[in-house]
Design a protein around this nucleic acid. Structure first.
Length: 596
DNA sequence: GCCGTTTTCGGCCCGACTGTTTTCAGTCG
């Protein structure tokens, strides 16, 4: 595990333990924010000196000392003593829906609850009723929540959440009275995992909308059903492709419906799309301009007045569209994917990020020759149907035995088949003969250079030895990046979301080498991978590194994963200029040939 | 604990819903 990941875990643990001891809420938030900052740094924070640490937004004297102590000793004294004070199992009690720090603290100190088991025991007793604000309904709610998986572990991969979110959105749009409906939240931001699904609607038949939402397919539980907000919990299919839940565990995801007035739609969409941190920054900005921002609009800030501005009938200065609200805040429209408070607040104009429609080629795809489900002709036809100018055939190399990797003889035979397909499809699309060649554990490639030189395109990817230590992994990947015949590094870390962490190379070194050797790094669009991940893309883009967005297609529907790759790219602020798949045919092929 | 175009001290976003209350605390996003 990289230092930054370990650090983020320690900072998060610190924040949670402080919460359970009833510490100052701003202190709690400061550690949580520092954890997020640590996760988003590409430079190894253990190597920075105090001055550089303090220069990072969100890191002050306290956190800097925390980082330095962790780097030097592998542990942090303050954290260790908190661990002694707070029972280890209490954090998982805090993870239960509906239980916050105040209640958990009370359960712990008054009733001796130390983990979920002991909570389950006291919940049926009479003593629990003696706690303040604790009645039968609250107890029933806790009981119900106890049966669901913990909040923290249930973030779903983007692609799994997408199926549920798309269906829910369609259902709402088909509901009579609904004028407008959109998805917001982390789904709209395109995060690689989704905690819950936010749906916004404008309707003149509110009760119908509430009913359509609360009675949707696979709803397990209605948590809240108010005037403007409904909360439900939906059962997730336990299997989707190669993704499945842990045996015996039911996966669920929460979904919130917000019914908003048409004239507030833009403000509401902003409010429910931005990350918490992005929203706080916007509201602070509003206050500095003598305005106040909420989900109903941007209002003149009438200090001292009681109640919300909209409830007093104050007219907003902007509310109907996101564009209007951002404009009145003196900002360009910020693309949803980067509303994370990672520097976007200070942008002076809307960045031109790569879009789905910009993608004109697929450079990583498999056929039945290795482990794909599509014969060559079907794969090519899929690319034509998408309007791509180029499709690369990149079956697995010989060492990927489990994927029926091609021997050099079989790879040469495939060339003949490709020549035949070129003749058949003519000018409709350019077919490239390539390979997804294994990067072996030592960084050497799975075919001889003579073989690689015969190919139009080489995607080099790690498939085995994915538990190597960071140093070895860095060396291994650097060797592949520096190889003169390699065009693209496929899924550079080999991570599988929620399943395996993959390699943790020194990403800044890889990026520097990729720039120097004109090698592209891939964003693998499959929702189980999304590798490179957003933070890596961001670092790569700012270094001027070329990026490929590919689907690693094995079957026709894999082409649909492109939207996830593109949202990951946008989160990394990738522009079409640096995205090789967005290039014209001429430009792309010129680059490919430059390595031959 | 962090931070500064009113501040090095004193702030730190805003509203909905629920359940327990009878005016609001806790939780959530």
């Amino acid at each position: 595990m990289s230092f930054n990941t370990t650090l983020a875990e320690h900072l998060n643990e610190m924040s949670t333990l402080l919460e359970l001891t009833g510490a100052n809420r701003f202190k709690i938030a400061a550690f949580a924010k520092a954890a997020r900052v640590a996760e988003n740094q590409t430079a190894d924070l253990s190597t920075l000196d105090t001055k550089d640490l303090l220069a990072i937004d969100g890191i002050g004297k306290g956190v800097a000392a925390f980082i330095e102590e962790l780097a030097e000793t592998g542990e942090v004294t303050d954290l260790v003593s908190l661990r002694e004070e707070v029972p280890a199992g209490l954090a998982e009690v805090l993870d239960i829906q509906g239980l916050g720090p105040k209640t958990v603290r009370q359960l712990w100190q008054d009733l001796g609850v130390t983990d979920r088991q002991s909570l389950a025991k006291v919940i049926d007793g009479d003593e629990i009723l003696s706690l303040p604000r604790m009645g039968q309904k609250t107890i029933d709610n806790i009981k119900r929540s106890l049966t669901f998986a913990s909040k923290s572990n249930q973030r779903l991969p983007l692609g799994v959440a997408a199926r549920i979110a798309d269906k829910l959105l369609e259902r709402m749009r088909e509901t009579p009275g609904v004028k407008q409906a959109e998805l917001a939240g982390s789904f709209r931001r395109g995060r690689d995992t989704i905690g819950d699904i936010d749906v916004l609607v404008v309707t003149d038949k509110e009760e119908l909308a509430r009913a359509a939402f609360c009675e949707a397919d696979d709803v397990l539980d209605v948590i809240a059903r108010g005037e403007t907000k409904c909360s439900i919990r939906i059962e997730v299919p336990t299997k989707k492709g190669r993704w499945k839940t842990d045996p015996g565990k039911k996966a669920t995801i929460g979904a919130d419906l917000r019914i908003v007035p048409a004239e507030s739609f833009g403000a509401a969409l902003m409010y429910f799309t931005g990350s918490k941190e992005h929203n706080i920054r916007l509201r602070e900005r509003a206050l500095k301009q003598g305005l106040t921002l909420n989900e109903y609009g941007l209002f003149p800030d009438e200090k001292g007045e009681k109640g919300s501005p909209q409830s007093r009938g104050v007219k907003p200065v902007a509310s109907k569209t996101e564009k209007q609200v951002y404009a009145k805040l003196g900002m360009p429209v910020i693309p949803p994917e980067i509303r994370e408070d990672l520097g976007e607040i200070d942008l002076e104009e809307t960045p031109k990020l790569v879009e789905l429609k910009d993608i004109k080629s697929e450079l990583h795809a498999h056929t039945t020759a290795s482990d794909g489900h599509m014969p060559l002709h079907e794969l090519v036809q899929c690319a034509i149907d998408r309007g791509f100018h180029t499709i690369a055939v990149t079956d697995h190399s010989r060492s990927s035995v489990q994927a029926n990797g091609l021997s050099e003889d079989r790879l040469r035979e495939q060339r003949e088949e490709i020549e035949e397909a070129k003749a058949h499809f003519g000018s409709k699309v350019t077919i490239l003969a390539g390979s997804e060649v294994d990067i072996l554990a030592d960084g050497s490639l799975d075919y001889d250079d003579d073989m690689l030189a015969e190919l139009d395109i080489v995607v080099a990817s790690p498939h085995a030895a994915l538990t190597q230590d960071p140093k070895t992994a860095t060396k291994r990947l650097l060797r592949a990046i520096e190889h003169p015949l390699v065009h693209i590094i496929g899924h550079p870390t080999g991570r599988l979301i929620n399943r395996r962490p993959g390699l943790e190379p020194a990403m800044d070194e890889l990026i520097a080498a990729a720039v120097e050797h004109d090698t592209a790094l891939e964003i693998n669009s499959h929702w189980m991978r999304l590798d490179l991940r957003d933070t890596h893309v961001r670092a790569a883009v700012s270094a001027g590194c070329k990026i490929a967005i590919d689907c690693d297609d094995h079957m026709p529907e894999d082409f649909d994963n492109l939207r996830f790759g593109v949202s990951t790219a946008r989160r990394g602020m990738l522009t079409p200029e640096l995205c090789v798949n967005a290039w014209s045919k001429t430009k792309l092929h010129k680059w490919l040939k430059s390595k031959r």
